[in-house]
Design a protein around this nucleic acid. Structure first.
Lengths: 184, 184
DNA sequence: TTGCAAGTGGAGGATATCTCCACATATAAA
DNA sequence: TTTATATGTGGAGATATCCTCCACTTGCAA
């Protein structure tokens, strides 16, 4: 799963160049941009890009890694002072917010999270932890899986990146998903 | 919005050929298939296809129209004998089931429903009616919008088209989203 | 019959993806 | 230092899809 041999010095530099270029280009023009453009911006051949990141999702996962790491860290810090359900709710909201940083990223969220990048791993782990905690404390139904949460986040991201709806729309949808549609 | 002048006889025939071909090809290989393939299967030039259906979503909406019409009709019939919440729940379940007929359709559900095809309109109208009824009878939170339901359906479709989960999985997720993730 | 609005096909330009391989070079061992 | 070679590189080109454009055809109303 993880790459065995360490990269050669020049290769490592190119890898970083690619990631920096990807961040710029994805931010500017969305997650669907041509990978040739990324390579060009990085000053690197397209072959080099593909050797390092065989799929677009690999590149997205790597480019997002730091962000996801931050997402996990924020959640960890916050969850100490929140009840389990609120912590999970806040986590979901953040996940959606992060997914909307690159336009068009939402559709890949599920795939990307499954790639073993440190950040992806951190975010998944944190989500699983929060869910489990909420479930053992009886705050959340026991038959919900982490995968369900990812789907929810995906759907909300998709819905909110079409409409130019603000953060209150995201919060509303998260609330609906957390508390249900039926009046209580 | 709706097309003014009626189609010429030959054009109408071609339109039907395209729709029949689209149904076959989408069923076989998913909603993302090459539109050239659809045109070829229909025995029609690609230009003709684009003239009639400017975007893939237009074609999807038209191909789905009959199905959506059936979805609405079923719901209308059923809702007479069900309490508002159950009727809404059943409607949601159907919406998801229909969305999974073409692989890869789920992500377009929101866009497609907004296209004025008779079936799309019927399904939307029915959903809005059920939601309103449930809300005026106090069975469902007043701050939920139809758009939220589409979001829910999308999420569940996405979740269940990845896993090869059966209908009981769909029912389960609908239940979760009707009653909330939070334990009651 | 006939005029023409409506319709048709598909070549072709634009854009993307991804592979392949001749060539270059960092690095570890001699 | 000098190799030997595993590792890395660039980018041409094969393949695929999208979508437009326009010369040509045809249904149909008058």
């Amino acid at each position: 799963m993880t790459d065995e041999t360490p990269l050669r010095a020049d290769a490592k530099l190119n890898r970083e160049r690619i990631l920096a270029a990807a961040e710029d280009v994805f931010l500017e023009r969305g997650a669907g941009v041509s990978l040739d453009d990324v390579a060009r911006r990085a000053g690197v051949g397209i072959g080099t890009l593909y050797r390092r990141f065989p799929t677009r999702e690999d590149l997205l996962a790597a480019a997002y890694s730091a962000r996801f790491e931050a997402c996990a860290e924020t959640s960890r810090a916050r969850s100490a002072t929140l009840d389990p359900a609120s912590a999970l709710s806040a986590y979901l909201e953040d996940l959606v917010r992060y997914s909307n940083v690159y336009r068009g990223f939402a559709a890949s969220l599920g795939t990307v999270l499954q790639i073993g990048t440190p950040g992806c791993l951190a975010t998944s782990t944190e989500g699983i932890r929060l869910l489990q905690r909420a479930q053992t404390e009886g705050a959340v139904r026991p038959d919900v899986r982490f995968n369900d949460l990812v789907c929810v986040a995906t759907a909300i991201s998709l819905a909110t990146e079409q409409d130019r709806s603000g953060p209150e729309q995201i919060a509303h949808l998260v609330d609906v998903f957390m508390n249900g549609i039926v009046r209580r």
